[in-house]
Design a protein around this nucleic acid. Structure first.
Lengths: 343, 343
DNA sequence: ACATAATTTTTACGCGCGTAAATTTTATGA
DNA sequence: TCATAAAATTTACGCGCGTAAAAATTATGT
């Protein structure tokens, strides 16, 4: 390993005794050059550790190997987990993922799309903020860049959507709760940020009617992404007000449920399905932490692997199709019930 | 808003009737051009929504406005939270943060440093993996790019380190636990990924000696970043083996504690400081979720704001100093105790 | 050894922008 | 109104690399 610093491909081509265009060809596909030149280049690579500038590479390519990934809030382990899965799949497919978080804010989401435009990505996987998104900004972006939406659907945006089937989530939890105890009351934020929440509420109401029960929806005040705290305070308020007409609470998502469990604990209420328990709490998402709550949370789980896998597959198909599908594809994966101790 | 698409600064300069170099000057500092030309440019900006390509901008700048941020594992809410703080501070300072996660793997950390090199950042804030880091790769990087380490220190690397004072964390929890009940046993991973863990163990042993007590360190098997699961299984094992000689467990960090609480719950052990409780559990970090565990976790809290703020300040000073400090700076912030219900 | 095909090299331009120097245009003041 | 300063324009080059076309070099089969 020589200590001389190689600043660019020009210098590296010089020390390896090969012309720059051939070196360039090598880096794009090592098999596209003659065996002997490949050996010479790789010998030079061992002496001088040179790697092409990733951003200059994509400056003048017909089709780059960049894939953008945008999630609404990366500090939420749910998105961190799914993003990590997607990133790995992109790398396996020979692409270069660029992960950006919108931090729950519209301005950041717009900035992210703008940054991605500059990267000239081959395609983008976008989980939009939802209610807070600037629809027209996203629409314009989708016109320019092949985009697949995931997790949170916005009608008509992007060439495809991959996500989970909210009705499947709710049907499974409601059915389970109905056959194992009292009918569930539904706990949610009054003004949810995400369209999935609305679909879950509707699915809950439908499911309850199907069971011949009156739906009970309890809304909580609060805005932003501090779901646990909203769930905690909202549950305290609802318990004080006597909003829950049964002993069973079905939360719209796990983070609210974590807050609800916290409130129950603070009030000395025992959660679980035993006869000595005061309440049952169930939820949706199978958040990475929900296995570790006390009691562990009964929940409907996303098929993380399927959603991540299908999202990447769909995007790659889209790219190969030249950026357009004949019609917008929607893929929804069913949930699977994870029964733990809380309900 | 015209529908004509502007592809680059050249075209935008044309439609705004100003020369490209002047437009370039405007985007770097709107006040650096004459009022009338500024008005003309901004009028054009309202008609055609053009924004310079962020990556081309930094291709040939003397000093870019890019700042790199590398964290070892972004799916850990602790790092997500501190990264979010740092990102915001960078933006306020007029810089452009690029956040990368090493996903707990050496190869990814090396890749990240390499990507950053391509971005020609003005500086980098690096929270290294720790034990899994490739020291020489990091060392070479620090030679080329002004770098400040944070959270996890590696002796001699980078121009400065900003983090928390592990001894302060442990002293506060140990002192509190000693004066409020039985002496604590220390629960940790046998082979921790992070140097902070080692410092905490040493500080625990020191603190116990100071109190005239025999330290009891309980090590848990396990590797990787699934700390909750390691904590859960390890606690089960330790409880079965009778490793805890007192009723008080002090965990090395909150994520292990979350797992420990889960194990206690599964065994029907009541955690808290009441007379009806079987165990006390305390910990370190004040992880974003530790307020919502059942019971809520007593812990020593990082001064998130101070660490994030000082890290960014230090990096900006470093950049202004031309990338070198006369000597390596180390800033450690003390913890503050957060007493909740678990101990 | 020779014709042919396959690679490589040379040459030259492009991506989108920063930046420096020389020149021209505008603004300012007496 | 004219000299002077300030700002804008023109011109030209650079960043690190992709890529296309033409010329030169190698490898292959017979």
């Amino acid at each position: 390993m020589s200590d001389r610093k190689i600043r660019n491909m020009e210098e590296f081509a010089a020390v390896s005794g090969i012309s720059r265009p051939t070196v360039s060809k090598y880096f794009n596909d090592p098999d596209s050059v003659r065996q002997t030149t490949r050996a010479r280049i790789e010998a030079a690579l061992e002496q001088y550790d040179y790697r092409p500038n990733v951003f200059a590479i994509n400056q003048n390519r017909r089709l780059t190997k960049n894939l953008g990934i945008v999630v609404p809030y990366l500090a939420d382990p749910f998105f961190a987990e799914i993003a990590r899965n997607i990133e790995n799949l992109c790398i396996e497919a020979g692409f270069r993922p660029i992960l950006l978080s919108s931090h729950g804010e519209q301005s950041q989401e717009i900035d992210n799309l703008d940054s991605l435009r500059s990267l000239k990505p081959a395609g983008v996987l976008l989980a939009p903020l939802g209610r807070a998104s600037d629809r027209s900004a996203i629409e314009r972006f989708c016109e320019d860049v092949p985009t697949v939406l995931f997790d949170s659907n916005i009608e008509g945006m992007g060439e495809a959507f991959v996500g989970s089937d909210n009705a499947s989530f709710v049907n499974q939890t409601v059915d389970y709760l109905m056959r194992s105890g009292e009918p569930p009351c539904f706990l949610e934020m009054r003004t949810p940020a995400n369209p999935n929440a609305n679909k879950r509420r509707i699915a809950y109401i439908e499911a309850m009617k199907r069971h011949g029960q009156d739906p009970v929806v309890v809304g909580m005040e609060g805005d932003g992404w501090a779901f646990e705290e909203i769930g905690r305070q909202g549950t305290h308020a609802a318990l004080s007000a006597g909003d829950f007409t049964t002993n069973t609470i079905l939360c719209s998502n796990d983070r609210l449920a974590i807050g609800a469990l916290s409130a129950c604990y603070e009030r000395g209420l025992k959660v679980g399905r035993g006869s000595d328990c005061d309440l049952r709490v169930a939820s949706h998402d199978d958040h990475p932490f929900s296995r570790f709550t006390c009691p562990a949370l009964t929940t409907a789980a996303h098929d993380y692997t399927a959603v991540a896998g299908r999202s990447v597959e769909t995007l790659l198909e889209l790219i190969e199709s030249g950026g357009r599908f004949s019609s917008r594809q929607e893929t929804l994966f069913p949930a699977h019930l994870v029964v733990r101790a809380s309900a």
